[in-house]
Design a protein around this nucleic acid. Structure first.
Lengths: 333, 333
DNA sequence: GTGAAAGCGCTAACAA
DNA sequence: TTGTTAGCGCTTTCAC
């Protein structure tokens, strides 16, 4: 920039303004500047700009697992949607580790990101205190009661209700649930499951709710397998199973098939997340689609809009039931 | 930082040094500084630090599609491995668009990232000129002949050979190939396929190579379906099919099953990429695992090592054959 | 062991 | 329309 100014006999300020299409700059001057800039292959130093403007044009995203199609889909949508507005996306995978997550929050804060988007692994909102209102925070997928952060995700009670009602409609009467880890999504889905059962006068035996354990998210398949084995040993056996997520549903399917039982004949299975290849599974898996792309888009809108200091946004993206062979007992006959 | 200095009657310089564990600082002073810093919840401003040191501790990553498990896996591994070294990861999805990619390169350059990691969508290395040696570049997965950038990925000829030899070993004699878009990976796999056939005295009819078209990557399933339909209309019909990637293999499977043919009996199918749920498919899909995690780890090592200005690194991560039901003709009897 | 001076590359206010 | 002055928050000499 200094070079350009020197070359053209102008001041650095003029060049700076010309480069940013400032209103009060001579048309001819601007053209000369832009020309010389492209000749030199000039790239503005955004770091320096950020230091003075206090804005980094960066959104920080922390997810538990970037390989998980749900989070990957959200990340992709955010990235695509903020890009045209000049924003960049700083991503980190917390690996479902609350300590890593807290460390990453501090890291993003130190980098002065404009917005933090977080799918938290923490049990409470305590770890979010570090943020202290300086940087807008958008919670993703997982909520906390005691926080004033914005939220974008599903109404998990609706998710649980949708799945459970579907199983009931398919004629299941002893419906079990593989319960996820101690985060709001798991609690919400469980609540939705219970309400739906109660509403239809079905008993929700405590035995029918099996915990996937803390590894329910990143080792879902194994956890689902183990949990389903326990469930299948019961008598009478459950005839319907609502799983916290798709990987655990896959694990459950494996357990069921290994025992020589049929899906959905002996037991209907539905997951949550609607992973990309659900159609191509040995037995196509019914699932509740959470609308990852829509969630990502909404987050991007919020981040770009910049009116995040005002009233709290709580946006529920409606879930969608995708019924496939793993639950369709009647239509398949 | 100024506050800390004022509070303690020290200079900003001393505080700065204390915070960074500079050797020549009093033990007691350091402790006082650290204490006051944590009291105030002080976070160093990395933007400012970067401006003076010229190092941003940021790795920029551009991939064609973040939702693709291969790239998501790489991104996750890079993120996890650079994190402990204090690096952040700035990600963007180019959506398989060369123009977006070039724009993102400029963007990363403007942000002064320390290293650019790129899985390029471009046909030639021309679009990389912008980088001009100022910032180290690591090419991922897709190579260019005329560039001196580092490379981490697979030897795609080995990938193609591995898959094709496997089909031959399974008794296939009319082996077709769904060819990917115009990038090095597709060319390499095709070459490996041809060499393997030639070596075994099998004819490689031009008809047996069908192009998936430009959408081969992000709409792989549909492209695979369409391409396979064309292939299946031939007579004699191919009895083995090596697909550029797993999604296209899924599409091909759909086409085959729809025609009432059996897999692998009538036609054996192998893909590439070994997507996470390949085990749970209707017919478990054989595939060549590219070692996404290993690739990501290697990239992280290189980025962190910082001796990227020296000789060019070319690291081939060995591919691994994962044989499943879709190709196992003999052992399944 | 500590601090004063200078500057990283850029932009906001104001003056010319 | 253009330039001057100042400063973003931090780190680097180099003197004390």
């Amino acid at each position: 920039m200094k070079d350009i100014a020197l070359d053209l006999g102008l001041s650095v300020v003029t060049v700076s303004k010309a480069l940013r299409d400032h209103p009060d700059i001579g048309e001819s001057t601007r053209r000369r500047v832009l020309e010389r800039a492209s000749e030199l292959g000039y790239q503005p130093n955004l770091t320096a700009r950020s230091l003075v403007t206090g804005q980094t044009w960066t959104v920080g995203l922390i997810v538990p697992d970037l390989l998980h199609p749900f989070f990957a889909g959200i990340a992709k949508a955010i990235s695509s949607d903020i890009r045209p507005h000049g924003y960049g996306l700083l991503i980190s995978s917390s690996d479902e580790d609350a300590e890593v997550e807290r460390q990453q929050i501090r890291h993003l804060l130190a980098r002065q990101v404009d917005t933090i988007v977080l799918a938290s692994t923490q049990a409470t909102a305590d770890g979010l205190r570090d943020i202290g209102g300086r940087t807008p925070l958008i919670l993703l997928d997982r909520r906390f009661a005691d926080t004033d952060a914005h939220f974008v995700g599903n109404d998990d009670e609706a998710v649980g209700g949708l799945a459970t009602r579907h199983l009931i409609a398919q004629g299941c009467r002893r419906i079990a649930h593989l319960r996820g880890p101690a985060v709001s999504t798991a609690a919400g889905r469980l609540a939705g499951y219970r309400h739906a059962l109660a509403k239809h006068g079905l008993s929700a035996t405590p035995d029918h709710v099996v915990d996937l354990g803390p590894s329910g998210d990143h080792r879902g398949e194994e956890a689902g397998y183990a949990a389903a084995r326990r469930l299948l040993a019961m008598s009478p056996r459950p005839d319907g199973l609502f799983c916290y997520n798709d990987p655990s549903a896959l694990g459950a399917m494996r357990a069921v098939l290994e025992m020589g039982l049929s899906i959905p004949g002996d037991i209907a299975i539905i997951g949550c997340g609607n992973l990309s290849y659900a159609d191509f599974l040995r037995i196509p898996l019914s699932s509740v689609d959470q609308g990852a792309e829509a969630i990502g888009r909404r987050v991007a809108d919020l981040a770009v809009s910049r009116n995040l200091t005002g009233p709290r946004h709580i946006d529920f993206i409606p879930p969608r039931l995708v019924a496939r062979a793993s639950t369709l007992r009647f239509t398949e006959e």
